[in-house]
Amino acid sequence: MKIRIIIEPLIDGKKAEVYTVRVFGNEDSEYKIFCNEFSTNYSETISKINRLIIKMAEKHGNRDIYFENEGTNCVYKFKDTGILRLYCIRYGSLAIIVGGGDTKEPWINTYQEKESLDKAVRMLRAIDRYLDDNSIIVDDLHQIINKEIEIDIK
């Protein structure tokens, strides 16, 4: 399934740059949708994630210790978020593209079992494939920022 997306800058910090993904036609990025959906019932977790993102950008870079690989080569989830799952792609310690996510209830064993989680992971995998196919490295990300690109969510 092909969709059009826009990768937009969220934070430009001393140690890392953070980007979000917006599906073309949507007003909000996947990350904003995630935050809005869960900021009422999971306000503490959302606040901690937001603060950590700022700390990564300003001070620590996006270090391995903050993430866990989500069964694929390129997609990671933020660690220690309770039943929330927020996915991203990381480029070394310098850049991170934050996608969306959802809750992963205890009875769900893998992300593939829940459509919203699976879609979030597949979208980021598709972005990573697009960057790979077009030989776009982290230093060249600015070439596609704020521009409409078409990805194939297989």
């Binding site: 934070i11 430009d12 910090g13 979000t20 606040s47 937001n50 603060r51």
Partner: peptide
């Protein structure tokens, strides 16, 4: 200097309780 591009995110950060900021920072 850190630059935040999306206003909704800056607004959310501004509303974060101080103790959460301190907890994550430390």
């Amino acid at each position: 200097m850190t630059k935040i591009y999306q206003q909704w995110f800056a607004d959310m950060l501004a509303k974060t309780p101080l103790w959460i900021n301190r907890l994550v920072d430390v």
